[in-house]
């Protein structure tokens, strides 16, 4: 079978692979690149266990032919740790706060959460915002509570100290609360 050369940046390193034209990115990552952290749960883009970042955006790698990733920058769960291998704030929060139970959905969830954190830099996403951002990643163990808590804790950690202090100020809290109340009221209507 004819194979196509595909080049991408994977977790910071350039990779070149020769793949069958329709081979899924998921399989290329797991088989050709030997990165098995990215999981398959359904093969049809419903469970999100195969989520990776493609040019900074979370995507289901089971739905994407690897040839589409040509020239892209990819990040998988293996690329989330800090340089030197220390856990990132996000990973650490999952470990200490019970965000990972069986762990099979964890890589995909971490990648989706990473996208959210990148998007909401300098700000702690609200509970509902985290739940919405992770709605494409199924978890059957945790009931999501500890995952949401861990993502928000990591966001808090990542905030600059000044912003954290401002957030702690009563005024800021009142604003946040007012926002929540207004949102609830909107939803109730």
């Amino acid at each position: 079978m004819s194979r196509i050369a595909v080049t991408f940046t994977l977790n910071g390193a350039r990779r070149r692979v020769r793949v069958a034209p329709m081979k899924r990115l998921l399989d290329v990552l797991r088989e050709d690149c030997a990165l098995t952290g990215t999981k398959e749960g359904c093969g049809e883009g419903e469970c999100g266990a195969c989520t990776v970042l493609i040019d900074g955006r979370a995507a289901n790698s089971c739905l994407i032919p690897a040839v589409h990733a040509d020239g892209a920058t990819l990040v998988t769960v293996e690329g989330l740790a800090r340089r030197g291998g220390a856990l990132s704030a996000l990973q650490q929060a999952f470990v200490t706060m019970g965000g990972a139970q069986c762990g099979i959905c964890t890589p995909g969830i971490l990648v989706s959460a990473q996208e959210l954190l990148l998007r909401s830099r300098g700000r702690v996403p609200g509970d509902a915002e985290v739940r919405e951002a992770l709605a494409g990643n199924l978890c059957r163990c945790t009931g999501y509570q500890k995952i949401v808590d861990a993502v928000r804790a990591a966001a808090r950690e990542a905030m600059p100290a000044r912003a954290r202090a401002a957030r702690r100020a009563p005024k800021a809290r009142a604003t946040a609360k007012a926002r929540r109340t207004a949102k609830r009221a909107r939803r109730a209507r």
Partner: peptide, 10 residues
């Protein structure tokens, strides 16, 4: 959780 480090790194 003792084995969680393995799980969050893949």
């Amino acid at each position: 959780k003792l084995e969680a480090g393995e799980k969050v790194t893949g």
